[in-house]
C-alpha cells in the first residue's frame, strides 16, 4: 500500500475539493445542455477558461484554451494566437499551477478517482521519465502538428480526455452524433479508459504525464505572483512535506518545482510552518 493511501488527509484538502467543485460547476453552468445535448453559444464563449474543459461539452460556458490555441495554429491562413496566448500568459504569471490544484475540472475528476479505495502505487521507476512526455505532447500535438496539418487539432483529436467526456455526453443525448461515431471515438474511449484506470492507482496520471496545459503552466511556477515560499530558518528537513506530496516532490528542496500543482498538502503537513503559498512580500 502506498504511503498516501489515496486520502485527502487534512480538512484543508476538503476546502480545496469544495473550491474545485464550485469552479467546475461555474465553468459548466449550462446545466440544461446535459439533458438536451445542445452546446452553449452565448458571449461568454469568447473567453478561455483557465483549465482543461472542452468547449464541445454541452455544459461548458467558456472556451478551452488548448483547443482554441490549436484552432489558430491549424487555421487555413496562419494567424498568430495573440489573444489565447495572452490569456495563457496572464493566468500563468498570476497563478502558475494553482489552476491545476484549484480550478481545473479534469484535475478534480482525477482527485476524486484517487479517493476511490483501490490498489495504490504512486511511486515507481518510470515515473520520473514519463513526466517529460507532457512537454512532447505540448510541442508536437498542440503546436507542431497543428501548424503542419491544416484544420487538424491533433491533441483534441487523438488524446484529449476532456473532449472524449463531451463525446460521451453527446453520444447519449444526440442520436445524430451517435450515428456518426466510429473508430476515432473508440480510440478516444480507450485513451480515456487508460487514464481513468491508471487514475485509480496513480495520483493524477494525466496531469503528471500528458497534459500540455499543466506543462505550460509549470514553466511559470517559479515566477508566478502566487508561488510557494520556504522559510529556510524554520525548516528542520524532517521530510514531512515530501511524504505528504502526492506529486512526489520535496518542496523543502524545490518549492517551485514545475510539477507542483499547489494543492497545499505539504503546507498543512509541515510541523514548523516553514512553507506557505502566496504573494512574496505581502506577508505580515
Amino acid at each position: 500500500m502506498d504511503k498516501h493511501e489515496g486520502k485527502t488527509k487534512h480538512c484543508g484538502g476538503g476546502v480545496r475539493l469544495g473550491i474545485q467543485a464550485v469552479a467546475t460547476l461555474i465553468q459548466n453552468a449550462n446545466f440544461k445542455g446535459f439533458f438536451t445535448g445542445k452546446i452553449y453559444t452565448g458571449k461568454s464563449k469568447q473567453v478561455c477558461v483557465p483549465g482543461l474543459n472542452c468547449y464541445s461539452c454541452p455544459g461548458a460556458i467558456g472556451a478551452c484554451p488548448v483547443g482554441s490555441l490549436q484552432n489558430f495554429l491549424s487555421g487555413r491562413k496562419f494567424r498568430f494566437p495573440y489573444y489565447v496566448l495572452g490569456i495563457l500568459l496572464f493566468v500563468g504569471a498570476l497563478l502558475g499551477r494553482v489552476v491545476c490544484g484549484f480550478l481545473c475540472p479534469f484535475g478534480l475528476l482525477q482527485d476524486l478517482l484517487y479517493l476511490i479505495p483501490f490498489y495504490k502505487k504512486n511511486q515507481f521507476l518510470l515515473d520520473k521519465y514519463l513526466r517529460y512526455l507532457k512537454y512532447a505532447v505540448l510541442a508536437v500535438l498542440v503546436i507542431i502538428l497543428p501548424l503542419c496539418l491544416p484544420l487538424t487539432p491533433t491533441f483534441c483529436k487523438y488524446v484529449c480526455p476532456s473532449g472524449t467526456i463531451a463525446g460521451i455526453i453527446s453520444y447519449f443525448t444526440q442520436p445524430i452524433i451517435r450515428s456518426q461515431m466510429g473508430k476515432l471515438f473508440s480510440w478516444k474511449l480507450i485513451v480515456l479508459g487508460i487514464i481513468v484506470v491508471s487514475g485509480l492507482i496513480v495520483y493524477r496520471p494525466f496531469c503528471k504525464y500528458l497534459c500540455p496545459l499543466g506543462a505550460f503552466y509549470g514553466f511559470f511556477n517559479r515566477f508566478a505572483l502566487v508561488r510557494m515560499h520556504l522559510d529556510e530558518g524554520k525548516c528542520v528537513h524532517c521530510s514531512a512535506c515530501a511524504n505528504a506530496c502526492k506529486m512526489n516532490i520535496d518542496p523543502s528542496r524545490k518549492p517551485n518545482s514545475m510539477e507542483c500543482i499547489r494543492c497545499g498538502d505539504c503546507v498543512r503537513a509541515c510541523p514548523k510552518s516553514a512553507l506557505y503559498i502566496g504573494v512574496k512580500g505581502s506577508e505580515k
Binding site: T41, S68, K157, G163, G167
Partner: peptide
Amino acid sequence: ASRVCMECIG
C-alpha cells in the same frame, strides 16, 4: 467554441 468540434468529441 459555439459549434461542436468534431475532432474533440471523436
